[in-house]
């Protein structure tokens, strides 16, 4: 069994430093890895990233993250990534990593993702250049995620995004903003590999559980959704076959 802890949308800044630490002290007893599903900061500044690095440093388990839209706001992504990596946090964007755990090799592929909507109600690459660029951004993110997932050799495969790959986990959000919350292209990427679990954030008013058309379980771990410091999932090498 591999134990995966995850949370997203922690929106760290100096005013909340230390809030997660009591729960994080228990992490090594509960999980083999911690996944952070983006929106780690409020505005995407290097100073806020330093708060993230401080809060999630030296936890006794590997910490793997993707960035979210908030982490891009100040256009300081290289500084944010460098600061997070300085705190021992691996930041994935169209990349993957494999971790040896007592329960087997855990592969995690990550990408921020983007919006666009879901089957039958999605944006198309047509018309103005701005619209084509919007859709192409999602296509590129989904392609990177698919390639990263398919490259990994491991016993259990997990996809980590910020944006949602399915509409199921958006239940509770206004329907009108679904296209800004995720894209079916991310779900298609997740289904292109033997993924056991997909974890995302971004949808603060969404719901916890969903499933891709290919049968991959999806969990929205946005902090306001899970209402705890992190959630823990127990995965087994044949989790997808049993789904």
């Amino acid at each position: 069994m591999i134990r995966v802890a995850a949370v997203a949308d922690v929106h760290m800044d100096s005013d909340v430093l230390g809030r997660y630490r009591p729960a994080l002290e228990e992490l090594p007893d509960k999980a083999d890895v911690l996944l952070l599903g983006g929106d780690l900061t409020r505005h995407g500044s290097a100073a806020e990233a330093e708060c993230v690095a401080t809060e999630f440093r030296d936890l006794g388990v590997p910490v793997i993250a993707v960035l979210g839209n908030h982490d891009h706001h100040r256009d300081q992504v290289p500084e944010v990534v460098k600061t997070l990596e300085g705190g021992g946090i691996a930041v994935l964007e169209g990349e993957g990593t494999v971790i040896d755990t007592p329960g087997g090799r855990l592969g995690v592929a990550g990408a921020k993702g983007f919006g666009g909507g879901f089957a039958g109600r999605c944006a198309s690459a047509f018309g103005e250049p701005e619209m084509k660029a919007f859709v192409q951004t999602t296509c590129d993110a989904a392609d990177r995620l698919s390639e990263a997932l398919r490259r990994l050799e491991c016993d259990v495969l997990v996809a980590l995004t910020h944006y949602a790959p399915v509409p199921d986990t958006l239940l509770g959000e206004p329907l009108e903003i679904y296209p800004f919350l995720g894209s079916y292209l991310l779900g298609q990427a997740i289904d292109s590999a033997p993924t056991a679990l997909a974890v995302h954030g971004h949808a603060h008013m969404g719901s916890e559980r969903g499933v891709t058309p290919g049968g991959v379980k999806v969990r929205n771990v946005a902090h306001p959704v899970i209402k705890q410091a992190y959630s823990v999932f127990h995965l087994h090498a044949r989790a997808r076959a049993a789904a």
């Binding site: 809030r19 009591p22 729960a23 228990e26 705890q228 959630s231 823990v232 999932f233 127990h234 087994h236």
Partner: peptide, 14 residues
């Protein structure tokens, strides 16, 4: 204010 207590239980996805 979103709570930050540790989880009481894990979800088994087998």
């Amino acid at each position: 204010i979103t709570r930050t207590q540790p989880p009481g239980e894990a979800e088994d996805l087998s």
